[in-house]
Design a protein around this nucleic acid. Structure first.
Lengths: 196, 196
DNA sequence: TGGAATCATCCTACTAGTAGGTAGATTGAT
DNA sequence: ATCAATCTACCTACTAGTAGGATGATTCCA
């Protein structure tokens, strides 16, 4: 793996656990075992490094949602999305979404980095809206508001669940909250026939 | 107002907008128009100041929920709780809950401050659990899991909605998400009779 | 094929500025 | 006379970022 990628990986982990204002080039330098000046060679400013982290995460998610959308049913897609985070949080490999962490710090971020964060949220909620719309058309989901509203609400619950899991120091909290959120989308008659 | 209270108010505002790692004694000193050393006289360490902020907010919320619980119906109580934040976010006076902000930074916080944050979440979810239980007994709410689970999910959605509103830079996002969350708690037959 | 120039990478050494925090003097009310 | 509140002046540690040199691989060209 290239030094550049090691730097991004280290920065990602540090942002997830400590936030943008909570880590320094010195932290990255120690994790990757290079000098601070070497980081500046690859990423002149701290915001460049953080932006690279966000844009790479963004690209991965975009690719994965594209792959998922052709091959799986709407409810499976949602379940795979939440399941991904469930595993990340449970094994502590990624205890928080990078964009979620940065969103809480948004007012303090350099403009270019803030833009990258906003794009993540825009694309994620767009994808959720599409999945929910499709699921509703197929009769798999029962929406109570517009697909747009339900998508925002679902996304909010996922990020709120991450926050709660962190506050309680318990990954199970995330799983429980998200499970109840998924359950609410399933039509009540389908739920009853499953229970029977 | 005492200098001490001015310091707490300033710190609260700074934590809400910039987070614990995003503000310094120099920021507070400028807002309150005193020297840094004067802040250290009242709050020897930064974590002491932040803890005072959290504990004061905690006390206010505890008192308000106690007042509410005797005088209002469960659905009114929830509406007043979310309405409080709706107004805070809309007029930008308090664009984020202090404890929510600090929870995202939890791994970087001094132990005593982290404990204070955890207590806020514990008490808030306990209150929500009581309100939801009462509402369910009165037939005003239709819970799909245990009251405990529903309380955690509701809380997660409120905090996720704050995050989303910040990401989009639009207070209306918070209002929309929370409205859909409240709607979901109302039994479907009550909803139908309202629509009719 | 044998340099010679180029370039990316990484380094040591440094800067100016800011962080949280301390020592000790001054003020003013009780 | 005491004591809380505030101040000036300072400290050490750390921040992001820079200047410029060493290394080593690639490319250009005679």
């Amino acid at each position: 793996m290239t030094t550049q990628q090691k730097l991004i990986d280290s920065a990602r982990h540090l942002i997830q656990t400590r936030g943008y204002n909570g880590f320094s080039y010195a932290d990255v330098a120690e994790e990757v075992q290079v000098r601070k000046a070497s980081i500046h060679h690859h990423f002149p400013a701290k915001s460049d490094l953080a932006r690279a982290v966000v844009e790479q995460s963004h690209a991965v998610i975009l690719e994965q949602t594209r792959t998922l959308s052709g091959a799986f049913e709407p409810e499976e897609q949602l379940h795979m999305y939440t399941g991904y985070w469930e595993r990340c949080i449970a094994d502590a490999s990624a205890p928080f979404c990078v964009a979620g962490m940065l969103a809480s710090e948004l007012p303090t971020l350099p403009a270019d980095l803030a833009d990258a964060v906003r794009m993540h949220f825009r694309d994620l909620s767009n994808w959720l809206e599409i999945v929910l719309t499709k699921g509703a058309q197929m009769g798999r989901f029962e929406l109570q508001g517009s697909a747009r509203q339900e998508a925002e609400a679902f996304m909010a619950m996922v990020y709120g669940a991450m926050l709660a899991a962190r506050a309680y120091g318990d990954p199970k909290v995330f799983a429980d909250i998200v499970a109840s959120g998924l359950k609410r989308l399933v039509p009540s008659d389908a739920r009853k026939s499953q229970q029977a």
